[in-house]
Write a protein that binds this DNA or RNA. Sequence first.
DNA 1: CCTCGACGATCAGAACGCGCATTCGTGTGT
DNA 2: ACACACGAATGCGCGTTCTGATCGTCGAGG
Lengths: 220, 220
Amino acid sequence: MRVLIVEDEPSLGQQLKNTLEGAGYAIDLATDGEEGHFLGSTENYDAIVLDLGLPEVDGLTVLDRWRKEGRTAPVLVLTARDSWSDKVAGLDAGADDYVAKPFQTEELIARLRALIRRASGNASSELTAGDVRLDTRSGKVTRAGEPVKLTAQEYKLLSYLLHHKGKVVSRTELIEHIYDQDFDRDSNTIEVFVTRIRKKLGQDVITTIRGLGYSLEEPA
Amino acid sequence: MRVLIVEDEPSLGQQLKNTLEGAGYAIDLATDGEEGHFLGSTENYDAIVLDLGLPEVDGLTVLDRWRKEGRTAPVLVLTARDSWSDKVAGLDAGADDYVAKPFQTEELIARLRALIRRASGNASSELTAGDVRLDTRSGKVTRAGEPVKLTAQEYKLLSYLLHHKGKVVSRTELIEHIYDQDFDRDSNTIEVFVTRIRKKLGQDVITTIRGLGYSLEEPA
DNA sequence: CCTCGACGATCAGAACGCGCATTCGTGTGT
DNA sequence: ACACACGAATGCGCGTTCTGATCGTCGAGG
């Protein structure tokens, strides 16, 4: 899952980036509204964390521009505590959630999870397909009840596919959402990880649609 | 927009009902977990407001049951202030948002709006013609409900025709849109793929207009 | 109405390129 | 120093796509 953070205060921004990367997200960090707006408009994020109190271009303005451009990525807004008129304004401008500063990082992570989950149309924190089960909260994967150890990348890949169960997901889409901005697109890492996941979870888990990408189906 | 409120305290429940009805929503009010669960399972709501602190059947339990039953309606949870571990538990149990009690009704309304907007934004773009159905988001094609496996080129061709349903599309137009840049125009690949699509989806799907091209019509 | 010409449909074999497996090198954490 | 995870490169197998030939069909004009 790829997340954009727009936060002007360097130390907080960096800390957020580290925390969320630890939670398994691919993070891009923008340090002002201009850069944030640009990245949010040009790249494809699964969620955006936006500080409203930005210098130069205000956070609300950035959000408004995105929505006018038709960008639908879920946005979580950071506000100063107790200014709930801001919160309402933010929600009406198209934010999907907010967290008041200062905040518990755990709460932020939980809200991000919920946001991404909802955006992909899932209601539960458990993602399943056949006898494969992935719990986004604990980060554990089981097959037919048996725990399976996945590496970080394998987990991210499987998670993204489960979040888009039934859809055909192209290789480029996978690369864009699993890695952050700069990454060599001409390599076959995705194929390699698909192979490794199949080895661990079974051949039939991931279906290949030749020329289009991969798909994770609920077996009949 | 139809909203269910599950709130055991009568005065608060009634007040919420009035406020939200004033905001233009159609409100059903349940006064305990049992009734709430029943209504949420049998009726179709655009959103649900759920108090976690219910007598008899706990709010989290109700939520959990709904999710297990596959109910995906967005749920906004009411919690006691400052017990954010509850909030996290609620979010992970499948809640889409929460509001801490006591709350400003305006904030509740704003959050409901955001929730409903987001939920309805997940509309999938489907292209259909007769009993043929193509979902551009999932990249899947069905005929009379039966999934049909198409190859990359077949899919592109069908997709283009569906996007221009009712219009006559020339061979050169198809070639220009399906292949990038220069492609040998003296080949009959288009015809080949039209044949293959017809084999998979039925003869009558694509109509030939002699001397002009092909057309995909909505059958009368 | 029949004939002929032109266009479209179909088929099978060939060429192509995608996706897979495997191995190897590098980096990172223990 | 060692183990492990990750990513890069390679060759192979097979499904997909393309080509060219042949067959079928439609329509206009005699």
